[in-house]
Write a protein that binds this DNA or RNA. Structure first.
Lengths: 216, 216
DNA sequence: CGTCTCCTTGAAAGCGTTCAATTACAGTGG
DNA sequence: CCACTGTAATTGAACGCTTTCAAGGAGACG
C-alpha cells in the first residue's frame, strides 16, 4: 500500500524500497540497478551530482505541496538522462512509476543537457497543457504524446502507470480520465485493449480534440 | 494596440519597440537601458548568453502554443537576474510587462544561478498553482506572493500589469479574476484602492483560501 | 467630447468535480 | 480450486464552479 490516497504525502514505507537513496552514484559505474516501483530516487532538496540513465521503466518528477496535494511535473522515459552537477540540488522528487532499470554513468558528462534544463522543458510543456481549458484536450494530447514514443510497436500504446498518476499530471481526477477515455472509445478514436493499453484508431481526430477544435 | 486579443501571437509592432533584440549584451557593460512596455527581450529559440539584471519593472516569461494560446510561465521582479551561458537557448519568450530599467552585466557570472534553473523553479511554482483546483485559491496565493515582495512598503501591494496577464498566468479569464477580487472585498479580506493596487486586511484569511480550506 | 482600453458586473449554460456504487482483477490463504 | 480481500478502474447522478456572452462603467488621451 504505497499510495493509499494519492493526495497524501509519501508513506515512510517507500523509503525502504529506495535502493538509490543517498548512495554515491559514483560507486557503481555503468552497472544496471533495479529500482522498485514507487521507490524514491531523489528527494526534493537532495544535492547532486552524477548522471543516471534510465534503461527501462518510467520515472516521474513530482512536487508535494504543504497541504498534501501532488503535482506531477513530468515523466522520464527509457534512454533519458538525469544529469545534475555536483553541489546542485534537485528541485523535484524523482520516483519510479514502474519497476526500472537504471545505470549510473561515470563521466560527469559535461556534454549532456543538465537536469535543470530538462526539467524546465518538461515543466513548461506540462504547464502549457494544464493551462489550456478542457480536460478532454489534455487527455487527447497525452495519448498522442505516448504514441509518438511507441513508434515501431504494433500500433498499440501502453501506459504502465495508474490513472491517478495521469490525473495528477493532467490536473484532473481519475474519474474524469476514465470518462474522457470512454468518450474517445464511443467516438471511435481509440480501441481499449487492456485497462492500461489501447490502440489509436484516428490520430487526426485526437489531434483535433487536442487543439480544442471540437469535432462533432 | 499590442494585445488586441491576448490569445493571439505577438504583433510585429512589438519587434520595433525591443531595443535589446539581437544585440550584443557585452557591448554595454553595466549601463542601464530602458525597455518599453510589451517589448520583447528575447524570443523563444534565441541563443544566449550574457547576464541581465532587472532594476525596475516587471518581465514575464511566456510560451505561445501553435493555436495561439498563451501561457505565462512566470514573472521576473526587480533585482532578479537573467543569466544564460553562451550557446544556450531561451526556452521562453521574455517580454516586458511594464516599462523596465535593465542593466547588462559584464562578467559571465559563473556564480549566478542560471536562467534554466530559475525558470524551472518558476514553471514548477506556477504549475503547482495552476494544477490545484479552485481559481479563488490561485488568486489568493498570488496576492500573498505579491505581498511578500512588497515588504517595507505602506502595506499596500500594486501589480502593474493588466488582468489579462494575471488570468493567463493563473489559467483563468479576466472576468473570473475580477469576481475573485470582488469576493475578497466582500469578505473583508482586501481593500481595493485603485484598479491595480489594494491593501490586504486579513492575510491569514487569504492564506486559508490559498490552501483551499474554505472559511465561511 | 468621442474613442479606446481596461475593468467590472450580470445571467445562463457547460463542464468537471464530488460522492457513491459497481465491476474487474491479482494476490492470499483456506 | 475457490472464497476473500484490497486495489484499480468504471459508471451514475447531482451539485457547483467557471466560462461564455453580453452590457455597462471608468479613465486616459487625442
Amino acid at each position: 500500500m504505497k499510495f493509499a490516497d494519492t493526495r497524501v504525502t509519501l508513506s515512510p514505507l517507500s523509503l525502504e524500497t529506495a535502493p538509490h537513496r543517498r548512495q554515491d552514484p559514483g560507486a557503481n559505474l555503468g552497472t544496471l540497478q533495479h529500482v522498485a516501483k514507487d521507490a524514491v530516487l531523489y528527494w526534493e532538496g537532495d544535492s547532486g551530482g552524477g548522471c543516471l540513465r534510465l534503461h527501462d521503466g518510467v520515472l516521474r518528477a513530482v512536487r508535494y505541496t504543504d497541504d498534501g496535494a501532488r503535482q506531477v511535473v513530468g515523466f522520464f522515459w527509457p534512454t533519458e538522462l538525469l544529469h545534475l552537477g555536483k553541489g546542485e540540488t534537485y528541485h523535484c522528487t524523482i520516483e519510479a512509476v514502474t519497476d526500472c532499470q537504471i545505470a549510473s554513468l561515470s563521466g560527469d558528462g559535461q556534454s549532456d543537457v543538465g537536469l535543470h534544463e530538462v526539467l524546465m522543458d518538461k515543466a513548461i510543456a506540462t504547464l502549457s497543457v494544464v493551462g489550456c481549458k478542457s480536460v478532454i484536450s489534455r487527455v487527447a494530447w497525452f495519448l498522442l504524446e505516448l504514441s509518438r514514443r511507441e513508434n515501431g510497436a504494433d500500433g498499440t500504446i501502453g501506459f504502465d502507470f495508474p490513472r491517478a498518476d495521469l490525473a495528477d499530471y493532467l490536473g484532473t481526477r481519475t474519474e474524469t480520465v476514465c470518462r474522457m477515455l470512454a468518450q474517445f472509445r464511443e467516438r471511435g478514436l481509440v480501441e481499449p485493449l487492456e485497462p492500461r493499453r489501447l490502440r489509436i484508431l484516428d490520430a487526426l481526430g485526437l489531434a483535433a480534440l487536442a487543439h480544442d477544435r471540437l469535432v462533432e
